[in-house]
């Protein structure tokens, strides 16, 4: 199965913020081409005038009362942070 010309794996990986190795790029391109070929048959279906379904049951605008409720204590919320200091998450420098 050949890779469709428009499957630009570098562009997609960049959008997904995912670093891929050269080997992964070759392998995934071929596998995704297979899957996309299988998906092609959806083009046979006549969908004129058909509404798209996002959820099986339509739910619109679920409102919650604007009332403060107890949340997680800070130490619990930060428990899984890879690096923290003074109740804050440490990240690499973001401005030069």
């Amino acid at each position: 199965m050949s890779v469709p010309e428009d499957l630009n794996i570098d562009r997609i990986a960049n959008l997904a913020r995912l670093a891929l190795t050269d080997e992964e790029k070759v392998k995934f391109s071929a596998q995704l081409a297979d899957v996309l070929t299988n998906i092609e048959k959806l083009k046979q279906v006549n969908v004129d005038g058909v509404e798209p379904t996002a959820h099986a049951f339509p739910i619109y605008n679920v409102w919650a009362d604007d009332v403060a409720k107890p949340g997680l204590p800070v130490e619990d919320a930060l428990r899984n942070a890879p690096e923290k200091r003074d109740n804050m998450i440490v990240v690499p420098k973001v401005v030069e």
């Binding site: 499957l7 794996i9 562009r11 997609i12 990986a13 959008l15 997904a16 995912l18 891929l20 995934f28 995704l32 899957v35 996309l36 998906i39 959806l42 083009k43 279906v45 969908v47 058909v50 509404e51 798209p52 379904t53 996002a54």
Partner: peptide, 24 residues
């Protein structure tokens, strides 16, 4: 990667929107 592709600009209607219609 596949999900990002089907949602990406230029492919959304052909894949994602069509899939949602067939889902209906």
């Amino acid at each position: 990667i596949l999900g990002t592709y089907v949602l990406s600009s230029g492919y959304y209607d052909a894949y994602y929107l069509r899939a949602q219609k067939v889902r209906t």
